[in-house]
Design a protein around this nucleic acid. Structure first.
Lengths: 230, 230
DNA sequence: ACAAAAGTGTTGAGGGTACACCCATGG
DNA sequence: CCATGGGTGTACCCTCAACACTTTTGT
């Protein structure tokens, strides 16, 4: 009987594109600096080899923690890249994931930089190892499409946020302005935001109402034929 | 120096979900019957192992031709499946693709059935090998979303088609009725259909105008910020 | 008092949906 | 002449886009 282990096989890796937002109004990407060749010293996406009998998302989550100490993100599969020449060591297939993190939570860890990991602004990325530049481009395209149809944008914000923060987020990711009144009308009409009994603090102007994303209500609503769409 | 070939690796395969339409008004899927264990005799998606230094889409195209003699389709990557227990032979990662073919063109080959390959109606699929049932479900979900945003539906029809055929296609895939007048208005307004100087023949009623998809015009239009959206 | 952002309604245009009848062709 | 699908226009509604001033708060 022919056994599949009789054949030579490509190596299988996972890579993670983690996006984040901060007060600078730029979209950021989490990168690590490579310690080993190939591309030693260059910046790259966190990722690595899939272990025997390890699921893909599990591998992505493990590598992300090992290399950047970031955990608890919601990972979505992006695409799989298998050009035979994409890794100088030999035929390597990589399954790419993307995720959104809020820099408010991860700010300190990224700043610590203990593992040569840090956030880079999308606009000024260094040259990346392998085909990671391409992967990041694909990830941002997918993010732009998905954020308009699914309420994933909230992952980029702290749990409690203001409508203005939410609007900025969409403006940054989609790189286009929104009308304040129309934006608020639309979002509030969707009825998936919980209006909290709290306001912003420590701001040198009128304090804004804080909101929270109502995941439960969204799930219900979605089942009964309902579209996010922004 | 550590070499990547020192580590054990999962096997890498590709699988293809090919959809087709015929006059029966059901969406069809192209399946093959397995000649070898595991799942010997069961129906499965066409696909197989990626060869050394072979690109993923190239592998998918090759396997599709080898197993079903179907060529020339536009393949789109769907998702990658890597649950370690999805193949009883051992850890196997499969990259799934989907494609649309028009049964008018492939009708004869499929009927020939020389390779135990044939079309099955989506509504009455046999039990599939591996996790191929899940993959088909994911493919149909993706198809339903994509067909509303990109003009891929035309791939399911012959080059020359009538507006009624096009409407049926959308009704079948999206499983909901469209209003005839509104559908025609919308499609014609998009201005990506070439109205041919030909009509249907051999029909027991008034002959319908034939149209053709204008790929070139669509490409141009798309660059200047234009959305398909149905 | 002033600076800075929060908050709030109306109008007009365009697109979507609902809807019914006559026309051409083959049998 | 009959059965079958082909082809066409209008009216209403609702959603989206444009647009400016008052309110609150901290300094």
């Amino acid at each position: 009987m022919v056994h599949i282990y009789d054949y030579p096989r490509p190596a299988v890796t996972v890579d993670c594109v983690v996006f984040g937002l901060d007060q600078t109004h730029y979209l950021q990407v989490l990168l690590i600096q490579r310690r080993l060749p190939p591309f030693k010293g260059q910046w790259a996406l966190p990722g690595g080899f899939v272990r025997p009998n390890e699921a893909l998302e599990e591998a992505a989550r493990r590598e992300l923690q090992e290399e950047t100490d970031v955990t608890g993100l919601c990972l979505e599969q992006l695409q799989t890249y298998g050009q035979p020449d994409r890794d100088p060591r030999g035929h390597t297939v990589t399954v790419a994931f993307y995720a959104l993190g809020n820099l408010w939570d991860y700010h300190i860890k990224a700043a610590t930089d203990a593992k040569e990991a840090r956030w880079w602004p999308m606009k000024h990325l260094p040259e990346l190892a392998f085909d990671h530049g391409l992967i990041v481009q694909d990830a941002i395209s997918t993010l732009r499409i998905t954020i308009r149809h699914k309420p994933i944008g909230f992952e980029l914000l702290p749990t409690k946020f203001t409508l203005t923060q939410l609007q900025r987020l969409y403006e940054i990711v989609l790189a286009r302005p929104f009308d304040k009144r129309n934006f608020r009308k639309k979002l509030l009409k969707l009825d998936i935001l919980i209006s909290l009994d709290e306001k912003e603090t420590n701001v040198p102007h009128r304090a804004a109402q804080l909101y929270q994303f109502d995941r439960t209500k969204y799930m219900e609503r979605q089942k009964t034929g309902f579209n996010f769409d922004l």
